[in-house]
Amino acid sequence: MSAEILATRTVVAQSNFLIPNGTIIVELVIFLVVLWVIWRYVVPPVKRIMQQRQDMVRKQIEESQDASERLAAAERKYEEALDEARTEAAKIREGARADAQRIKEEMRAAAEQEVAGIRQRGEEQLTTQRQQVVRELRSEIGDLAVTLSERMVGESLADESRRSATVDRFLDELDGMSVTDGQATARSGENR
């Protein structure tokens, strides 16, 4: 074995290593096998996959653009809706305030009206009561006058003239009282 190697080395020493020998054919065959494998089995599937991924990335970019556009549109719509809601709320608030004002006015008017009605009714009642009182008083005073006159006539006629003057004045005063309302009621109360 060592002798063989020695022999071949002698051959190599005589040949130039820059000149190819039979190895070149084997080398070419080996490379052709590599080339065939890569050509046939590696490049097509990898290229297909690269193509698919490029398509996928393109699609994803499109989708993301689409999504961001839709997001922007949604945001715009949201802003619009918000503005609309704000103006609507302001409108409602204004309306409510106006309603409140109006209701207040109406209630005030109604209350005033009622007060006026009550006052009127009270006044009317007072008037009727006064008239009634006056009427009662008149009849009573008549009775009293009759009783008084009976008593005066019955008991003594000594100072007839003076008594008649007193009765007259009394009657006059009563008449005067019936002329002025307020004073009359006050006086009639006093007199009672």
Partner: peptide, 29 residues
């Protein structure tokens, strides 16, 4: 530039080159 050689089918082969080429080819494949 010295290679151990073998003779095969009348060709002189640098066997170390053939082996290392085969290994490289196997790795690539």
């Amino acid at each position: 530039g010295v290679h151990p050689e073998v003779s095969f089918l009348g060709l002189t082969l640098n066997i170390d080159t053939v082996i290392s080429t085969a290994i490289a080819a196997a790795i690539v494949v």
